[in-house]
Amino acid sequence: MADSPYVPPKVWSPDTVNGGRFATINRPTAGAREEKDLPVGEHPFQLYSLATPNGVKVTIMLEELLEAGHKGAEYDAWTVNISEGEQFTSGFVGVNPNSKIPALLDRSGETPFRIFESGAILVHLAEKFGLFLPTDPAARAEVLSWTFWQVASGPFMGGGFGHFYAYAPEKIEYAIDRYAMETKRIFDVADQRLAQSRFLGGEEYTIADIANFPWLAPFVFGTIYNDAKTFLSIDEYKNVARWVEEIAARPAVKRGRIVNKVWGEPDTQLRERHSAADFEGKRLD
């Protein structure tokens, strides 16, 4: 006999939730759960993150700025292990009340201040250093549109498709179909755009590419959500693949992808980053 269909209660309670893989950290409340200060290094920027797609956006951006000669973009990158709830310490909540990575502390001026949300961090750094974001109003609008298109699309790919396809405690056909449809639509939007231009924002590499690459590339490479590449027929999106390969070859991108990485082969991990020397002996392919 089939299970009875789920009927939502009149008032929802978290006590009945089967959180699956994330049961130990998911709660319907915000704020710190543990008093603990964050580490602080010597550089102008202090990054607290993990090498998830959202985290990689910022490490790529910082490495690109350094590659372009902006020494003022030097940073210390500290790993925040979200599986162990380190995003709920008082120190981290102080730099991001939403308890999500990445979070950045800008200490380059007289008064340090925080920036949280990956899209906001990219815009802040682009404006501060005058790079990867055009000043022409029309070009700027195009780049910002594609940047925040990714910010809006990411939850469908990660928390939607990725969660129900790879992490949920049970396979729910409707949920997987719903988010597989949306993920493929997102890829088609990008593929059609990249048939028209070299990069998402136009003919120049910008924060639009830096924001989107860490999300789209793992599907192209087949390194995210088990066999998602096959399941979603990602090889159909030839223009996205061309764009991914070009960006992946950039030296700064190779470095940025391994910062705060704590899985995989040891020589592909860089748990903390404090100087360019930290990349010595690491595989950047």
Rank of each mutant, 00 (worst) to 15 (best):
2 A>M: 13
5 P>G: 02
5 P>Y: 06
13 S>P: 00
17 V>D: 01
20 G>D: 04
21 R>C: 00
23 A>F: 03
24 T>V: 07
29 T>R: 02
31 G>C: 02
32 A>C: 03
33 R>D: 10
40 V>E: 14
42 E>N: 15
44 P>D: 03
44 P>S: 01
47 L>S: 06
50 L>E: 03
51 A>P: 00
52 T>H: 02
54 N>C: 13
55 G>R: 01
56 V>A: 12
57 K>Y: 05
58 V>L: 07
59 T>Y: 05
59 T>M: 02
60 I>M: 13
62 L>F: 10
62 L>K: 02
65 L>A: 08
66 L>E: 14
66 L>C: 09
67 E>R: 13
69 G>K: 06
69 G>I: 10
69 G>M: 11
74 E>S: 15
77 A>T: 04
82 I>R: 05
84 E>L: 15
85 G>D: 00
87 Q>E: 01
90 S>L: 01
92 F>K: 02
94 G>A: 15
95 V>P: 09
101 I>T: 09
101 I>H: 03
102 P>Q: 04
103 A>N: 04
103 A>R: 06
104 L>G: 04
114 R>Q: 11
120 A>L: 01
123 V>C: 06
124 H>C: 11
126 A>E: 12
127 E>S: 06
128 K>F: 08
128 K>C: 09
130 G>T: 08
133 L>T: 09
135 T>K: 14
136 D>P: 02
142 E>G: 00
143 V>Y: 10
144 L>I: 13
144 L>A: 07
145 S>E: 14
146 W>Y: 15
148 F>Y: 15
150 Q>D: 09
150 Q>M: 13
151 V>K: 00
151 V>S: 02
156 F>Q: 12
157 M>E: 09
157 M>H: 07
157 M>C: 03
160 G>D: 03
161 F>I: 02
161 F>C: 00
161 F>L: 10
164 F>S: 05
166 A>W: 05
167 Y>G: 00
167 Y>L: 14
168 A>N: 11
173 E>D: 14
174 Y>V: 06
174 Y>I: 00
175 A>I: 04
176 I>P: 03
177 D>W: 02
181 M>A: 11
181 M>N: 13
183 T>S: 09
184 K>V: 05
188 D>C: 10
189 V>Q: 05
190 A>T: 07
193 R>L: 04
194 L>A: 06
195 A>R: 13
197 S>C: 13
198 R>V: 12
200 L>E: 05
204 E>W: 00
204 E>N: 14
204 E>D: 15
205 Y>S: 13
206 T>G: 07
207 I>T: 09
208 A>H: 06
211 A>K: 03
213 F>S: 03
214 P>S: 07
216 L>D: 06
218 P>M: 07
219 F>N: 03
219 F>A: 01
220 V>H: 12
221 F>K: 04
221 F>P: 05
223 T>A: 11
226 N>M: 12
231 F>D: 07
232 L>G: 09
234 I>S: 05
235 D>C: 12
238 K>Y: 08
241 A>D: 10
245 E>Q: 14
251 P>G: 11
253 V>E: 07
253 V>C: 11
253 V>P: 01
254 K>H: 13
258 I>A: 09
261 K>R: 15
262 V>F: 14
264 G>D: 05
264 G>I: 08
266 P>H: 07
267 D>S: 12
268 T>K: 14
269 Q>S: 03
269 Q>M: 07
269 Q>P: 05
271 R>Y: 06
272 E>P: 00
273 R>N: 04
280 E>L: 06
281 G>S: 09
283 R>G: 11
285 D>E: 11
285 D>P: 02
